[in-house]
Write a protein that binds this DNA or RNA. Structure first.
Lengths: 133, 133
DNA sequence: GTCACTGTACTAAGCACTTAATACAGTCAT
DNA sequence: ATGACTGTATTAAGTGCTTAGTACAGTGAC
């Protein structure tokens, strides 16, 4: 997996593991691979994985059985709440950035619709909110 | 200004300064306050401001007159391109995160519309993409 | 000339993150 | 009992970010 060097890897792992939980890639009650195995899969140090999982545990998204391994929570409400948190976080980030650029609601909506299908198109916003010329 | 401790401040300054340029808060050709003044305004070290402005210069968004100060580019096309880059970046980030959560296009659209007006509402997504219960 | 400003450069210190390398206690199959 | 697995803890090293402090060259007003 590729990581952004400009923010801590353990934080990016928290996001990735959370995503796996809400998409049931890591199903409720399922056993999570060991820190050494995850570290090898992700290409990072076991200590870094450990730190990310400790944070997931703090959020009660998983629990450690100490010697048997680590398991995803069986609390479906907690998982649904996590999904809502992540969705709202993504939406609020976009709204904050779009408003910061001075975009209007319909402009933002059109932009999202456009980027939804093709992630590597080139969009020309020049003139829509641009300068006098 | 408040900064996220989990990513470099100079990078957050690049984003903030870019925002000021595309919103004409820093108008084309306008003089940019000195590094010491900006640092005092933002509550950071002048060295950190310097690093952010050096990056803006590398992107040809401003140029240094060495002793007279620093000025925003007068190239309106470059500024329009920057606005498009920032808008697309925000949209692509949201699309990537929303798809990663398994959201459908109309779900994503509704979520954005909802978060556009009220940034601190509580949205209940439980059941929309949730578990069997 | 003097003074106040500009951008720029450099050092030293402190801090968080990441890594490698061990080490230890508990569980479980054999 | 032995060996292989679990989570967890610790140390040392290297790196990047941020800060404080200092310094220097060039410009312009007086």
């Amino acid at each position: 997996m590729e990581f952004d060097t400009s923010s801590p890897i353990w934080g990016q792992l928290v996001a990735e593991f959370s995503r796996r939980i809400v998409t049931s890639q890591w199903p409720p009650g399922g056993r999570i691979a060991g820190v050494r195995e995850l570290a090898a899969e992700l290409g990072v140090n076991p200590n870094t994985v450990q730190r990310a999982l400790a944070e997931l545990e703090r959020q009660e998204l998983c629990r450690s059985e100490r010697t048997a391994g680590r398991f995803v929570t069986t609390d479906a409400d907690r998982i649904d709440a996590l999904r809502a948190e992540l969705a709202e976080g993504a939406a609020d980030d976009f709204v904050r950035r779009a408003r910061g650029l001075g975009m209007a609601a319909d402009q933002a909506r059109r932009l999202i619709e456009e980027r939804w299908t093709h992630d590597d198109d080139i969009t020309d916003l020049a003139g829509a909110t641009g300068h006098d010329r």
